[in-house]
Write a protein that binds this DNA or RNA. Structure first.
Length: 257
DNA sequence: ATGGTCGGCAACCGA
């Protein structure tokens, strides 16, 4: 099984990038974040045409998550609960026998702000969500834009960036609590090299060339599934004329059971 | 010195 995640920053603006990448890599599952489209306007047809089903949960302008899958998406659920709380940031489905959770964690603005506290609260709600709905002893995949670089190796200058949003001790503590519930960072299990990033600030000129990156997009799995992982990588091979930062798919492969 | 640039969408907001 091959799974991937990509913060698409508007599915409509980057549809051809995503479609071409699916045709090239043929993953079983692709999780998207920041689709920025209400469900009634999600471009479902182009995925269907190349043999992929989709489940999506979005809104106008902001947020939005989608799961694209070769196999049928069963038991699709949106948000933390049956009332659909935070539905544009969390979607889950069962693919084959494996539950897949796709999240777009709040960005958090700046440490000390209300939105930063809301991000930490959101991570605590996510902990409760995993605890209430899943077991660390069973296969479970969590993919998405976590908006946190967990370890010093995951940012270009940890000493300088420590305390910034996305690399803050409070974020680390709240994310670690979820990890200790029972997740393995599947990418880091397979790739030990530094300099592996999925995000570069748009506002920094030539950030990709200068390697000013962050690894904030992740593929995590519970132990029984993580054990079966064989390979992980970040695919950022832009086509001619594309920005490399518009083309950052994090990918992992697992052996069949 | 406290920027920069994207996408959405129609003035700024969020990242």
């Amino acid at each position: 099984m091959k799974v991937a995640s990509f913060n698409v920053n508007s599915i409509r603006a980057r549809l051809s990038i995503v479609i071409d990448w699916l045709k090239k890599e043929a993953p079983d599952v692709l999780c998207l974040q920041e689709t920025k489209v209400p469900d009634e306007a999600f471009p479902e047809a182009p995925f269907k045409e190349i043999g992929y089903s989709s489940a999506f949960s979005g809104e106008k302008t902001y947020n939005g998550v989608a799961i694209i899958s070769k196999r049928p998406l069963k038991n699709v659920k949106k948000g933390f609960d049956d009332r659909g709380s935070e539905a544009s940031r969390l979607i889950s489905a069962v693919i084959g026998t494996v539950p897949v959770v796709n999240t777009y964690v709040p960005q958090g603005f700046h440490p000390g702000s209300d939105r930063f506290r809301a991000k930490l609260d959101w991570l605590d709600r996510l902990y409760d969500y995993f605890n209430a709905n899943f077991s660390p002893e069973e296969p479970l995949l969590w993919l998405g834009d976590f908006n946190v670089a967990p370890e010093p190796i995951d940012v270009y200058d940890p000493a300088h960036l420590l305390g910034s949003v996305g690399f803050h001790p409070d974020e680390h503590a709240h994310l670690k609590r979820i990890k200790e519930w029972g997740f393995v960072d599947v990418f880091r299990l397979n790739v030990k090299e530094p300099g592996q990033y999925t995000f570069w600030d748009y506002r920094v000129r030539n950030a990709v060339d200068k390697k000013l990156g962050w690894r904030v997009d992740h593929i995590w799995a519970t132990r029984p599934l993580a054990k079966r992982s064989t390979r992980a990588w970040i695919d950022m091979e832009p086509r001619l004329g594309e920005r490399p930062s518009d083309h950052t798919f994090i990918v992992a492969e697992f052996k069949p059971r």
